[in-house]
Computed example of a mutant assay.
Amino acid sequence: MKQIDRRTFLGAGASLAAWSMLPGLGMAQQGSSLRQVRLGVGLKAMSPIVINLVIGEILGYNAAEGFTLNTLALGTNANVQVAVDRGEVDFGVGVPSFGLPVLAQGDWKLARNFYQYTYPYKWDIAVLPDSPVQSYADLKGLRIGVSDFGATDYPVTRNVLRLQGLDPDGDLQWIAVGNGVPAGVALRRQAVDALAYFDTGFGQIEAAGLPFRLLPRPDNLPLVGGQFLQTRVSTLDSHPQWAVGLGRSVSKASTFILENPRAGALAFLRMYPETAPRGASQDAAVEAVLQAISRRIKLYRPPYPDVSMGYIEVSEFRTEAEMTGLQIADYAPFYTNDLIGQIDDYDHEAIRTQARNYT
């Protein structure tokens, strides 16, 4: 796969032009005393995949930190990176598969990851229930569907299949099939032989009643593919409390969801009612969100002992760099754990009580 360098990131900026001209972008609301914060996510439309990033708005966590959040779906992770670097958003979702190649080329200078909000590993490969494919090795010569070539399921799955002895370019054909239910439909109609996708995406397909079977994960599956909050280094230097505030809101929201997933789903739907299946009752809509997030919420807690939620383990970056043949001597410009202690400084039991009592 061609590495994504700074020039590629800047090229992605052209697709941001229409978004950046939206009226009122980044402007404070009239009469509001809360600071307006823009968060960029690499989605084409809002989805439960980012539930723990957004429900702090309706649960009061953002207001407690002095801000209100405007979440912007920018289409791809590359677009998010461009927007963060240019200061067109205040914060963005960072993914190593797009950032590490830039770091390896010495061009990573403007942004830094400061909170890990989802830990590895979240991807799988699915086939139809009656497919003869039984393992990753059986995929040789087949058509693999991914949601989008700008999404993380594409580069991560390529790297994992490379570890299984397959040539991602010579042994496989890759097809972009869209997000959510359309991806499941592509598999069902056999437009692809297998679907490489992430946990919440499979949950949406499952909720739509489309059958599939997940292939067994290989034993040597690497701990890679975490997702992070990032911002410009200049923001961390001048206003670290802004990053602490967003990180604390996300940590509280994650704690809330872990305590009562149904309450988290209900809060999400109150913020984004348009994401509910058309014609669904409230209970049915909540169940659909629960199915979508059931696999993901297990990844909110770090798989490392004695660390707080949000802690970044540098070995994930090293492993992913080795998988892709990147030579990186210093990871310090890419991340920081300096704010984790402050982010984690809140009454966890009060949040869990709120979740239990939420109606």
Rank of each mutant, 00 (worst) to 15 (best):
S251P: 09
K252Q: 15
K252S: 08
K252H: 07
S254I: 04
S254N: 03
T255R: 06
T255Y: 01
T255A: 10
T255H: 06
F256G: 01
F256Y: 06
I257Q: 02
I257T: 11
N260G: 05
N260T: 02
P261K: 00
P261D: 12
P261R: 01
R262V: 00
R262E: 13
R262F: 03
A263F: 04
A265T: 00
A267R: 00
A267G: 13
F268K: 07
F268A: 05
M271T: 01
M271Q: 12
P273L: 02
P273C: 04
P273W: 00
E274P: 00
P277I: 02
R278E: 04
R278V: 07
A280Y: 01
A280R: 05
A280P: 11
Q282I: 07
Q282P: 00
D283Y: 03
D283W: 01
D283T: 03
A285D: 00
A285E: 00
V286I: 10
A288F: 09
A288T: 09
L290N: 01
Q291P: 13
Q291W: 06
A292R: 01
A292W: 00
I293E: 10
I293R: 02
S294K: 15
S294V: 05
R295N: 06
R296G: 04
R296E: 15
L299T: 03
L299N: 13
L299E: 11
Y300D: 01
R301M: 14
R301C: 09
R301F: 10
P303C: 11
Y304A: 14
P305K: 08
P305Q: 05
D306M: 11
D306P: 15
V307I: 10
V307F: 11
S308T: 14
M309H: 07
M309A: 07
G310C: 08
E313Y: 11
V314M: 13
F317Y: 15
R318Q: 15
T319W: 11
T319N: 05
T319K: 12
E320S: 12
E320F: 14
E320Q: 13
A321E: 09
E322C: 01
M323P: 10
T324K: 10
G325K: 05
G325F: 15
G325W: 15
Q327G: 03
D330Y: 06
P333D: 09
Y335A: 11
T336W: 09
T336S: 12
T336L: 02
N337Q: 09
N337A: 04
N337H: 08
N337Y: 07
D338R: 13
L339W: 04
G341K: 05
Q342Y: 05
I343N: 06
I343D: 06
D344K: 15
D345E: 12
H348S: 12
E349H: 09
E349C: 03
E349G: 03
A350F: 12
I351N: 10
I351Y: 07
T353R: 13
T353P: 02
T353V: 08
T353Q: 14
A355G: 05
A355D: 03
A355N: 04
R356Y: 06
Y358V: 01
